[in-house]
Amino acid sequence: MNLCPGERTIHQTFGGPSHLTCPIIGGLIHSMTSIAIQTRSLRIRRGSNIVIDRLDLEVPRGAIVGLLGPSGSGKTTLMRAIVGVQVVKSGTVSVMGQPAGAASLRHRVGYMTQLASIYEDLSVRQNLRYFARIQGAPKSDVDRVIDRTDLGGQADQLARTLSGGQANRVSLAAAMLGSPDVLVLDEPTVGLDPVLRSDLWNIFRRLADEGSTLLVSSHVMDEATLCDRLLLMREGAVIADTTPSELLETTGAATAEDAFLRIITYDSAAARRILTSTSKAAPGKGRTRGAQ
């Protein structure tokens, strides 16, 4: 059950430098070194609802961070804020030390939306060529991402004739163009069969091993165990910032799904345990995993 390939790297590289505990200078150094994405008292309103309320969040570099939560918990809104296409009411979002959405960040952040977001009336290659030109990626990058996502056989097929899983991979390939430092993937495996899902997770792992930071949202709880870190969201708040093994340990659950259900439904003792354990999760606990 526990496929957790990230476990090894996490425990080896835990233990952020202690000088980072100084809140001001520490924050500054964080943003320059080990933190890929950071939000500070982020508030987002959609319509008349506050979807995200005073959210503080840190995503370490070079890791796969799973963003999990029931539908409607604010995952997509948070991701949109991180790529800089969401109107933010107050608070800050920074990516690689710069304000989210800054012009200089746009070629360093790859975004895969929930819909496939590709042109149905273009072939796979035509789609990727166009996005490569917009991204400013070299032409050879198109073949690289086609190869990486195993779309060679469909390269000249019109996107509208692709299966859902293939269209999803085109969308992922487009996000990978130009090898961005940060990949924000909104439910990339939704509606895929287990084989395709595991293929995609292999791709994610390889990207992370090469130094990219991946923020992956999902509501398939099995996938939680494939992440290095987990952020559990509920009603616009992060209710746990943990690792897969820590999640199972503190909740005493056998599977990630069970653990998640316990937390979401406020199985009070487990929830309190995990909430207190994460609030203390300062440097030593792995929040500040060093850049490789």
């Binding site: 296409v85 746009r106 939306t113 819909l115 977001s117 042109y119 996005f131 917009i134 991204q135 400013g136």
Partner: peptide, 13 residues
């Protein structure tokens, strides 16, 4: 509506 515009605007477009 297809999300392609959102993708483009998150890129250096």
């Amino acid at each position: 509506r297809s999300g392609t515009l959102e993708r483009l605007l998150s890129m250096p477009m």
